[in-house]
Design a binder for these strands. Structure first.
Lengths: 137, 137
DNA sequence: TTTGTAAATAGGAATGATTCCGATTATGAA
DNA sequence: TTCATAATCGGAATCATTCCTATTTACAAA
């Protein structure tokens, strides 16, 4: 989802399109990987001195609830990235830079009927390591 | 790994075999699933009134480092269980009771050569939901 | 353009898990 | 039994995150 579509979606749902929200979406649309609340606030402070954590977290949660961002827990800290809405897939995540690479294999496809009587609500498949770029630095 | 082997391993590595450590291992060997530090301290307080979080966390980390326990992050809180050392596998984890069921399918087996030039350090595959027992309660 | 109101925000306090630290106690080798 | 070191306690500190209240802002309607 691009920034414009996201802002339109916000407006449709009755949320306001503030400059901070645009900037947050701009940040994540260029990030190409997972970022923390702290990463984000450090970026935002350049344009909005005095921005509060409340604003950061409130909007991160709003965007997650709307499906604009997606989150995962890494090293005891929540990390966020632009949601990949086009199709279901998983990620390799670089421990150095947070960048991700799509993995187009979902292990759930092969578990048809393997868990009878279980209610399956969610699953996580993530690969951790160092990407080629960070490897050569 | 059973309690006795774990205590022997502790001794071999120069750690002391205290009553609290035996009790912690006893707790996890009967838990059959993931438990938090708080779950553990609540259990320990029955036998050791006044036991501190320092002792809980210090030993949880020690046991993880030694491969006696393994940890995962669920709902923003670390969860621990007895390590499954016999063979590599993954888990279904019940959101209600924390109990796990082995999943003998590892998606990494099918990713041979799919990530050239990437250094793969770790991976996580977990399925979340409700187990048959909790479902009927 | 002005106004009214609900949403958004700042600033800071509160929370909850986890870690750290100095003083005390207990384990196990000699 | 003694002694050095590991283990523990109790509580303070830390860190991410959430909550609260007063103030500001976006934007719909006049």
């Amino acid at each position: 989802m691009n920034i414009h579509d996201a802002m339109t979606l916000l407006k449709e749902k009755g949320y306001k399109t503030t400059g901070k929200r645009k900037e947050i979406l701009d940040y994540f649309s260029h990030a190409d990987g997972y970022r923390t609340a702290k990463d984000l606030i450090q970026f935002m402070e350049k344009s909005y001195e005095g921005i509060s954590f409340d604003t950061i977290y409130r909007n991160l949660h709003l965007f997650c609830d709307m499906g604009i961002l997606e989150a995962t827990e890494l090293k005891g800290e929540k990390h966020f990235r632009i949601a990949c809405s086009h199709h279901h897939h998983h990620h390799f995540i670089c421990s150095d830079c947070g960048k991700t690479k799509e993995i187009n294999l979902c292990p759930m496809d092969e578990l048809e009927g393997a868990l009878p009587n279980y209610i399956i609500e969610d699953h996580k498949f993530e690969i951790y390591g160092v990407c080629p770029n960070c490897r050569n630095t």
